[in-house]
Amino acid sequence: MLEMLIPAFIVGGLICVIGQLMMDLTKASLTPAHVLVTYVTGGVILGALGLYKPLVELGGAGATIPLSGFGYVLAKGAIEGVEENGFLGVFGGTEAAAVGIGVAVLFGYLVAVVFNPKG
């Protein structure tokens, strides 16, 4: 149960530190939305260049849980899609990320229906 815990902690922590530096060292108009968009796009690019995979092998959840991991899954899905299905596989990223997107939409909806904002 405890294997990969420490690598996940260190890799995940360091990925988040980069985001904290982005937020604190640039102007305050950089919102969480900007950080999230940067991370998912960064994950796609690093995934495409083959640079994110070693990070996943090293850090496990430390690399897949940050949103850059979502970008990596999208890129990986597109590349594997092309290998399997040719041209239509270009759109395979969404297929690979379908579980994450689906769960987020459904649970996001359910939680928003059930709860009220506390302020």
Binding site: M23, A28, T31, P32, P117, K118
Partner: peptide
């Protein structure tokens, strides 16, 4: 009102953010 103004001018109140 803190909550009505925050949601209009900045972010939803339940959205995590570190204020300047």
């Amino acid at each position: 009102h803190h909550e009505t103004a925050e949601r209009q001018y900045r972010l939803p109140t339940e959205q995590g953010n570190q204020r300047a």
